[in-house]
């Protein structure tokens, strides 16, 4: 099997316990290269916990999380510190509750995401002090990348405003842009459509579909909005009580009895109907 055809992310036997509570139990799934993989499940199913393990936020109690790059290098995420996961394993993420650097400008938010590249180019600031030409060029290139992503998310006019002053939907898109500025191979989005109105949600779909596969980008997604999940996912993994209960294409998931039962078993009947019909809840 060549490196290119192996999944970008392989999770194997992942377990996470908080004291007596088992949040994730023996979970195994993989995310294919260049695809959008969605992680869905009722509230409290352990989706965000999985994300936190993948991005180094939590150290899993057991199991392996492996990222495999195009060039064949692989990284065992369960034992890497957070900043290395971002900068070496090239995994970036966004949060369910927005965590921008609210006091910094949009442009600066995107430049912080390119910190490592710039620090190397400036020989850890020393080069920048003595005005090495390479430093100025790297800084310009970083600003170009930042501008590119501001254009992609439609915020280029507000580049110098403080990130905290943006309306909610724009902050969500800025978070995605910031994650992209770290140059990720795998982008993990935790409920990117939460709180968006239908038009913003459609724009988000377009953005994600256009990003998928670009420079080999793969996306792992947690989402409650079934309209988004069913429309853009290539592959869906369903969790309930920390365990995988189903996986497959949107069509397969829609008709899976275990999934329907899991969603109908909880109080939120509308979501269950949404899963089965693919409509927005």
């Amino acid at each position: 099997m060549t490196a290119g055809s192996r999944p970008i992310l392989e999770v194997d036997g992942l377990g996470m316990r908080f004291g007596g509570l088992v949040a994730v139990d023996g979970l195994a799934f993989s995310a294919q290269r260049g695809q959008i993989t969605a992680l869905i499940g009722p509230n409290g199913a352990g989706k965000t916990t999985v994300f936190n393990c993948v991005t180094g936020f939590y150290r899993p109690t057991s199991g392996r999380i492996t990222v495999q790059h195009d060039d064949g290098r692989s990284f065992a995420l369960q034992s890497m510190p957070g900043h290395r996961i971002c900068h070496q394993a090239k995994v970036a993420r966004t949060f369910q509750n927005i965590r921008l650097f609210a006091g910094m400008s949009l442009l600066e938010n995107l430049l912080v995401a390119q910190h490592n590249k710039l620090m190397r180019a400036s020989l850890f600031t020393v080069g920048g002090l003595i005005g090495l030409p390479g430093f100025a060029a790297a800084e310009r290139a970083a600003v170009e990348i930042a501008k590119h992503w501001l254009e992609r998310v439609g915020l280029v006019d507000r580049a110098d405003d403080a990130a905290g002053d943006l309306p909610y939907g724009d902050q969500r898109r800025l978070e995605i842009a910031r994650a992209m500025c770290t140059g990720p191979a795998l982008l993990c989005l935790d409920e990117p459509a939460a709180g968006l109105n239908p038009r913003e949600s459609r724009e988000l779909n377009q953005l994600l579909l256009s990003m998928r596969g670009e420079n080999g980008l793969s996306i792992l997604l947690i989402e409650h909005d079934m309209g988004v999940v069913m429309e853009i996912s290539d592959h869906i993994v369903v969790l309930d009580y920390g365990k995988k209960i189903a996986e497959g294409t949107p069509a397969q998931i829609r008709n899976d009895p275990a999934v329907i039962a899991a969603y109908l078993g909880v109080e939120d009947e509308e979501t269950a109907i949404a899963v089965t019909t693919g409509a927005r809840p």
Binding site: T55, P81, R99, F101, H115, T182
Partner: peptide, 27 residues
């Protein structure tokens, strides 16, 4: 240094949200 270099931006980012700074690759 604080307002216009990458180091300064990283410092301000850490000031606001250390965890998020780490997740964007800042040591």
């Amino acid at each position: 240094l604080i307002t216009s270099t990458s180091l300064g931006r990283a410092q301000r980012a850490c000031e606001q949200d250390r965890t998020m700074a780490a997740l964007t690759g800042v040591d």
